[in-house]
Write a protein that binds this DNA or RNA. Structure first.
Lengths: 82, 82
DNA sequence: TGAGTTTATGTCGATAAAGATATAATTTGA
DNA sequence: TCAAATTATATCTTTATCGACATAAACTCA
């Protein structure tokens, strides 16, 4: 489970998932209609992609985005951290 | 915990969090340098905002984005769903 | 009903993403 | 070491975000 805190960190997460699936940038791009160049720029946090582009990449890699209150992680067995 | 599957769903999630914090669109926008108009368009999924804009909104609402493999939810007490 | 608040739409200019394509740079493996 | 594969950059055009307004529409409440 990875917490994305910036476009750059998000790009690194996407890259690690892509590698886990054994895909190169060209293949990952083909799955979602992105050029290899765009995949490269997004992974390096150079692109600051749009939301729909991110969702397409997430879907292609079998990933999902979860949005929650900060500090709601599974390891916060207590619940008074607010 | 909310799973965002599209810009539109993401917008609805953002809206619910904003309301939970008792903010109107103008106030939420001021926290991150977005106009009320932009907040409206993003929440309605009409804008398809950029990643950095999303991160700014998340931060302002005290939220965080988690990216994980599909089906890695906390309720999958077993771990062999892959 | 009507004023005040909140949200939705509209326009315009500037900036950046994205598609297409090419090519350099890097990495990998024989 | 060298060729192939992979990744990083570059340029050009099209399109969309975003800030800045302005204003319409919807909602709240006395």
């Amino acid at each position: 489970m990875q917490i994305a805190t910036s476009p750059k960190v998000l790009g690194q997460i996407l890259k690690s998932f892509r590698l886990q699936k054994g895909l190169n940038q060209h293949q990952a791009g083909e799955l979602v209609g992105l050029t290899q160049a765009m995949v490269s720029r997004i992974e390096r946090g150079e692109s600051n992609a749009r939301i729909d582009t991110l969702f397409r990449l997430l879907a292609a890699l079998g990933m999902e985005m979860i949005v929650q209150s900060k500090g709601t992680g599974r390891d916060s067995s207590d619940g008074e951290k607010w």
